[in-house]
Write a protein that binds this DNA or RNA. Structure first.
Length: 365
DNA sequence: AAAATTTGACCGGG
DNA sequence: CCCGGTCAAATTTT
């Protein structure tokens, strides 16, 4: 009954494949757990059930800790050697959960040299971020914030996923990518010429799973996009992909700013310190040493108050400390990660003396 | 008619 | 020179 396929090579890749899927799945779980934690933190304090609130937090924290531990174990046990460009589909959940964010990756200075593998975008991660050393003063100056969502659309269902982030895009190009089965579509914010919003995104259909889209965003919206989602209660039936080899066709839906905030908060939660120059390019800055003021923000736990540093260079430095994280004592992710903070050109919006005020939703004003 | 997409040219980094 | 990202004219969609 049990097949003992222990062919050295063949099953090896399969093993790696499974391994990658595992990592991806874990990462996804962790992210979702983080979201839940976030949501909980936003929940207004219920005096009547303060105990339950505490319990909930504890529970979520345990879940998160489990994920973190599993991930760290996984990564310590085996580091994903980029030997083959095998692309693993990130998740196999199907319980009616369609059109969901599967995974998000953030890389600033990602280089894709024309070498062995660069064909498959989204160099697999699933662990890297925790151990990124940011402590080095780091003056990388040139990288435009870039993060990738992997989105899966369900057949026959209206795609409500982040394929539509609530923003309106205009396609300005399409390119065949070497080694990719499907062309890559280039989109930019419709209000580029109106408000100078430099946000762009590119959509790439996955090579093997045509239900998976890799959406890479570059730059953050500076425009005041209308979220106006409540136009009609009955969302028009959107055809998902009319023809093959067509990357994506985002309809229109809701929650623009919500999503934005959500993402921003997620970014925050991962711990970061960011600098934005007037150029629009981002700039790493030294981690905030004032971890002493680990005040509870947004009603509860994690991130310490933000630190806004404005240089005389008309550059705006927004630095954030890492998370305080009360996770299991085993794996303290107290390391401060470096994440790009994608603001567009804030030059128009702020002066070098503008004071940023972060509200509960993580945004500024 | 106006707005959005298509598609080859163009351009810059590696 | 190759590859990927963008421009812009032509063309299609609304």
């Amino acid at each position: 009954m049990a097949h003992h396929h222990h062919h050295h090579a063949a099953s090896s890749s399969e093993w790696e494949h499974k391994w990658g899927s595992l990592a991806a799945e874990l990462t996804a779980g962790r992210d979702v757990a983080k979201q839940l934690q976030l949501i909980l933190s936003f929940t207004p304090p219920q005096p009547s059930s303060s105990e339950q609130a505490a319990t909930r937090e504890v529970l979520v924290q345990k879940i998160l800790a489990s994920y973190e531990n599993a991930l760290s174990m996984l990564s310590s046990s085996r580091k994903m050697t980029p030997a083959d460009q095998h692309h693993h589909c990130p998740s196999h959940r199907d319980d009616g959960d369609i059109g969901t964010v599967v995974m998000m990756t953030m890389k600033s200075s990602e280089s894709s040299p024309p070498g062995t593998r660069s064909g498959s975008p989204g160099s697999e991660d699933s662990d890297h971020d925790l151990f990124k050393d940011t402590t080095s003063s780091s003056r990388k100056r040139k990288s435009i914030p870039r993060w990738t969502h992997q989105v899966r659309v369900g057949p026959g269902m209206g795609l409500e996923g982040p394929l539509d982030d609530g923003f309106s895009w205009r396609k300005y190009g399409q390119k065949d990518i070497l080694g990719a089965k499907y062309p890559r579509g280039y989109y930019r914010c419709t209000l580029r010429n109106v408000q100078g919003c430099l946000a762009t995104k590119q959509v790439q259909r996955s090579d093997d799973d045509s239900t998976v889209f890799e959406i890479t965003y570059r730059g953050r919206h500076t425009c005041t996009q209308s979220q106006s989602p409540s136009t009609s209660s009955s969302p028009a039936p959107n055809n998902i992909s009319p023809r093959p080899s067509e990357p994506a066709m985002p309809p229109a839906a809701a929650s623009a700013k919500d999503r934005q905030h959500e993402q921003l908060l997620l970014n925050f939660r991962r711990g970061l310190n960011v600098v934005v120059t007037d150029d629009g390019s981002e700039f790493d800055c030294s981690p905030p040493t004032t971890a002493t003021a680990a005040t509870t923000f947004a009603g509860s736990l994690f991130f310490p108050p933000p630190q806004v540093i404005t240089t005389s260079d008309n550059n705006t430095n927004i630095s954030y400390g890492g998370e305080q994280s009360t996770t299991a004592a085993a794996a303290p992710p107290a390391t401060v990660g470096s994440v790009d903070f994608p603001f567009g050109n804030m030059d128009h919006l702020f002066d070098d003396q503008t004071t940023f005020t972060f509200d509960n939703s993580g945004f500024f004003s």
